[in-house]
Design a binder for these strands. Structure first.
Lengths: 163, 163
DNA sequence: ATGTTGTAGTTGAGATCTCAACTATCTCAT
DNA sequence: ATGAGATAGTTGAGATCTCAACTACAACAT
C-alpha cells in the first residue's frame, strides 16, 4: 500500500486519525491551560508538579525522579522549581546519602495552593475529557496512550526492552 | 461515587487513564520532536506549518486561517512565520480583497525542505504511533481525539453548538 | 458621512524553555 | 588508592512564547 520512493506513506484513514490526534491534542491542552490561567492560582505545570510531590512520602522527591515523572528536562525542572521556590510553594534541600542529589519538598503553602486548585482542575478535566467520553472510550484512551508512551520511552532512552 | 465537598473526583480507573494520557502524550511529543531535531532540517512546528500550506491552493493561506488550522495564537504564528521568512521557507504578501489581511505562501525552497523532511517525519510517526497500535486502536484514537478536540474548541470559542 | 464595534495582524517586553557547558559527586575496575 | 566514565543538578545565553498594547481596516447601524 501507498509506497513511493521506498517511503510508506499513511493511508487516508491513518492520515485522518493522525490529524485528529494532533489537532485534538493541541486544543485540549490549550483549553485546560486556559482554565488554569482563568480560575486558578497555579498554572498547569505548577499544579502537575505539586500533584506529583503530594504523592511522595513526606511530599518530597529527588529532582531527577521528579523530572522523569513529569517528563521534563533536568534544566527545565531546575528553572521551574527555582521559580516555585521563590513563591514559597516548594523548598530544596540536599538529599541524604548522595551528596549530588537535591530533594524537592512541597511546603505547607504549596499544599494549600494545591488543595485550593484541585477542584477547579478536576472540574476542567471532567468537562474537557472524562465527561466527553463514554467510559469504554476513556478506558481505551488510557490503554492506547499507555502503549504510545511506552514506545516513546523506549526510543528516548534507547531502551530495547518492553517492560 | 467519589464525592467530597461537592467535588466529583476521578475514580481509580479514570485516574489511571488520565495519567496514561498525560504521560504518554508528553513522551510522544518529546520523541517526535527529538526525531525532527536529530534527523531533519525542519523542526516539528515548521514542518507542520509547511504541511498545512502545502495543502492550500497556490500553497498560500491567510495568517488567521493558518493560526486556526495549526491551533496557534496569532502572535505566535507571526513570530514563527517571521523566523521562517528569514530562512526563505515562506513569504508574506498582502491578501487581496481585504487590506488588513496577509497571505503566507510557501516558497520553492520551503517546498523542497518539506519534501526532504517528509520521509523522516512519516517514518517517525509510524515508528512512534501508527505501527505501535492495532488498526482498530488507531481508528479509535482518531475518533476519541476528535471528540476531545471538538469539546475543547467549544470551550475556547464559547461556542455552545455541537457542529 | 459618521461613529461604533469587530477583525487582522504586528510589536516589544517580559516570561519561559532549550542547549551546551560546567561543577561536584558517585561507581567501579584496576 | 586512583583514574575513567557515569550521574545529579545548575547555570547562563540565546531562542521561543505569552501577553497586552497598538495600527489599520472592515462592517454596519444611524
Amino acid at each position: 500500500m501507498g509506497e513511493t520512493n521506498g517511503v510508506h506513506w499513511l493511508d487516508d484513514g491513518q492520515q485522518a486519525a493522525w490529524r485528529s490526534f494532533v489537532v485534538g491534542n493541541a486544543r485540549f491542552w490549550e483549553a485546560l491551560s486556559a482554565a488554569h490561567d482563568a480560575e486558578l492560582d497555579l498554572n498547569l505545570g505548577e499544579y502537575t508538579l505539586l500533584v506529583q510531590l503530594s504523592e511522595q512520602p513526606d511530599r518530597t522527591q529527588r529532582m531527577s525522579a521528579l523530572a522523569d515523572g513529569l517528563v521534563l528536562s533536568r534544566s527545565r525542572l531546575t528553572h521551574t522549581v527555582a521559580r516555585m521556590e521563590q513563591r514559597g510553594l516548594v523548598s530544596r534541600c540536599p538529599a541524604d546519602g548522595d551528596r549530588r542529589g537535591v530533594n524537592c519538598r512541597m511546603t505547607d503553602l504549596g499544599y494549600a495552593a494545591l488543595v485550593a486548585a484541585a477542584p477547579g482542575h478536576v472540574r476542567a478535566v471532567r468537562r474537557l475529557l472524562v465527561d466527553i467520553l463514554d467510559p469504554e472510550e476513556m478506558q481505551a484512551l488510557g490503554r492506547i496512550m499507555g502503549k504510545i508512551g511506552a514506545a516513546a520511552r523506549h526510543e528516548l532512552t534507547g531502551d530495547p526492552r518492553a517492560c
